[in-house]
């Protein structure tokens, strides 16, 4: 009998430990260093950045404001000051270029929590039947805006686990840890990747923001795919892979265009055949060229 399939083992044997964990580690480094940057002020008195992910001031000059929160304040009927407008534009443009849900994978502190839940879920072999709709997040997004409009307050911020976790770490938790624990348990015991993959309205907003983003993961070498399914197993939004990876015969380009792709790069890590790489949206020729979508643009001669 064949040995049990271990996710990523094939890649580990083919590429070594570093190359199978490169993007994961870079992502963790990004998440933690952004958090550290915010904590440097309150903990060490070094104020490179003040505030939190909702709105902050970098080096006492550059304002940054969460565009989702900005839209919520607009909906309540308040027109914010220039600093917030500028801050929201800066952040919006940034994610419009590098991918909306890059926020989810590379910045958001809740990702650490839900990834931990998913890791534990895999380790304990928990599988649950509760299925949430992938579109629930858009309903959630609409709901938060409607509630903001009706109550005239930024109601979602009263329970938003994302800002609550970040603000909690920087300014003090109160009972916010309970909300974070609830998210962890939801993902662990109720439904797979329930929060980040199905419910979070922030993810939905950043998804919409990054609909036309430049930086995308591309299945450039999709001809080499050996159907090991490891990329589906590690992907937080597995439904985004198929059209790009298996689209050759339907004349669909190799670039993952689904805005729910978080550009986490885990598929790049875990693929023993190096099918995936980061690329740009425009290099999406459906002709199965091995270098379509390569960010570096260097060409290799087909042998």
């Amino acid at each position: 009998m064949a040995r049990e399939h271990v996710i990523g083992l094939e890649a580990l044997e083919a590429k070594g430990w570093w190359k199978t964990h490169k993007w994961l580690l870079l992502r963790r480094a990004s998440q933690l260093s952004i958090l550290a940057l915010f904590l440097l002020g309150p903990w060490a008195g070094i104020w490179l950045i003040k505030g939190n992910l909702s709105s902050s001031l970098l080096l006492d000059t550059v304002p940054m404001t969460d565009p989702y929160l900005f839209v919520q304040t607009l909906v309540t009927g308040h027109l914010p000051e220039t600093a917030a407008v500028l801050g929201a534009v800066i952040i919006a443009v940034f994610y419009m270029v590098i991918g909306g849900r890059v926020y989810c994978a590379w910045v958001c502190p809740v990702n650490l929590v839900t990834d931990a839940a998913q890791w534990l879920r895999d380790r304990l072999g928990i599988s649950t039947a509760t299925r949430l709709s992938h579109n629930a997040r858009y309903w959630m997004l609409g709901m938060t805006l409607v509630v903001a409009m009706v109550t005239g307050g930024v109601a979602w911020e009263m329970i938003n686990p994302v800002s609550m976790l970040h603000r909690g770490l920087i300014f003090g938790f109160g009972l916010a840890w309970a909300v974070i624990l609830a998210i962890f348990l939801l993902d662990l015991l109720v439904s797979k990747r329930a929060w980040c993959g199905h419910l979070c309205p922030m993810g939905a907003f950043y998804n919409l923001l990054g609909r036309a983003s430049l930086v995308r993961v591309t299945a450039a070498q999709r001809a080499d795919c050996n159907d090991c399914m490891d990329c589906y197993a590690v992907c937080p939004e597995p439904q985004v892979i198929r059209p790009a990876l298996k689209g050759a015969e339907h004349n669909i380009g190799p670039v993952i265009l689904d805005a729910n792709c978080t550009n986490c790069g885990r598929c790049i890590d875990v693929c023993s055949k190096d099918v995936f790489r980061f690329g740009v949206r425009s290099n999406n020729s459906s002709i199965n060229s091995p270098n379509a979508g390569s960010l570096s643009g260097k060409t290799e001669v087909l042998s």
Binding site: K50, G51, N52, S54, S55, S56, L57, T65, D66, L69, F70, T73, T76, G77, H78, P80, A84, A148, T151, G152, G153, V154, E157, S163, R167, I170, F171
Partner: peptide, 12 residues
């Protein structure tokens, strides 16, 4: 009432 709509809870 307006404050709750205008404040983004950033702590600046």
């Amino acid at each position: 009432e307006q404050f709750l709509g205008a404040c983004v809870r950033c702590g600046l």
